[in-house]
Design a protein around this nucleic acid. Sequence first.
DNA 1: ATGGTAGTTTGACTA
Length: 262
Amino acid sequence: MKLKIVTWNINSIRLREDHVCSLLAKYKPDIICLQELKAPTESVPISRLEELGYKYRVIRGQKSYNGVAIISRIPLSDADYCDYCLKGDARHVSARLSNGVEIQNFYIPAGGDIPNREENKKFAHKLDFLNEMKINFIKKRLSKTILVGDLNIAPLEHDVWSHSQLLKVVSHTPIEIEALQKVAEAGNFIDITRKNIPDGLLYSWWSYRSPNWSMSNRGRRLDHIWATSDIAMKAHSSFILKEARSWERPSDHVPVFAEFNL
DNA sequence: ATGGTAGTTTGACTA
C-alpha cells in the first residue's frame, strides 16, 4: 500500500479552505493533517473536501485557538485524542488505517517568548506537554505509527536560519530540543524529513512579521513527519512546499510531505 | 532592546 501524507498548520481553515482544496487537487495526498483550524468542529468546512474525494475525517475543532484534523480519502478507524495537560486544548488527534498503521497529529504549544519555565507559564506548558508525550509513548510501546504536526521546535542547526542567534529563542533552545529528542526516543521515532533530506537548510515556517520573508529567508523547520523505526525505511520522497508561503493570504507555515510504501 | 504581521472572541489574546 502506498501512502502519501502531508501536514500543514493552516492558521484558520475557514480563511484558507481554497488553499487546502487546491493543494489536495494538485498533489493528491491520501491524508492531510491540519493544525490551527481556529474553528469549532461544526464550523470546519467539509463539503468541498468531500467533493474532492476526502470522505473520511477526524476533526477536533476549537473556537478561536488550536484545532487539529486528519482528513483522508482512505478509511480511518479508532479515532481518538489525548487532552495533554488537561487544558481542554484541541492539540492532538489520532486514527488508524486499515493496514493497522496509526496516524498521530500534534499541535505542540508554541511556548511564548521567554525560554524559562519559572518566568513564563507558556514555556512551562510546552515542556510539560512534551514530558506527557514522552510518558505516554513509553507506556504505549509504539509501532507502525506515523506522527506529524506543528511541533513548534526546530531541532537541528540547519533547521533554523542562524543556529547561534536562535539558541536563546523559543523553538530552538537546548532544553526544548532535548525534550523533543526524548519524545522521539520514547516513541522509537525517526525524523523522516531529515532521513530523506539529510543536508542543507530546511524550513517550514517564516514569520508574518518579516515583510521581506523570502529575501531575508529567516525560516525555521517547525513542522515534522516522524515514523516509528519499524516503518521508517519505507518512507521516501519527502519534500517541503516552500512556494505555498507565496500564495495569496498565506499561512505562515507551508505543507510538509512524505510518502510511504507500507 | 524593540517592533514588525496575522487571525479571532473587536479588543486582547494567540502565534
